[in-house]
Amino acid sequence: MKLVILGKGGQGVLFFSKILAQMALNEGRSVKATEIKGMAKKGGVVEVQMKIDEGLSPLIKRGEADLVILLSPDLEEYGKTFGQKILKFTEEEIKKAFEKVPQRLVNTYLLGVLLARHKIFDKKTALKVLDEENKKSFLKGYEDAEKNVQSQDGDFT
């Protein structure tokens, strides 16, 4: 599986990549990843490419990612060079995340949304790598998104 995670410094790109990697490792799968941070810190583009159970190098050729996870909507055009399947969080989802959980847990809430939409990992795997409060926030996101997925025509699955 080839994943690309894109966002700006401070948005949790590294958090997402760490948790996804941990989940894969917990399942006994191998992980290769690479981080590219530009010169700027906060607000600069952060890019993670990750290969799970394949390849020798972490690099993904343009156009070949199985999923591009976008944390910053203005990077969409750039993200599309990696692959057509883009996951982005809707404004509504982000608003909801901020309403439902404290700011430091927003990322795990969104991780829940991600896994509900794309079953790249089992829910159980996620629960194993998260601590108690993160688990709760994750489940909230997961359940909220599941409700949504059912009501949509499923173009995200």
Binding site: G38, M39, A40, K41, K42, G43, G44, V45, R62, G63, D74, L75, E77, Y78, T81
Partner: peptide, 15 residues
């Protein structure tokens, strides 16, 4: 065919 990569916003000092 090679894929054209759009330029990213230039970096700036942190807020």
């Amino acid at each position: 065919k090679s894929i054209a990569i759009p330029p990213l916003k230039r970096p700036s000092l942190c807020p």
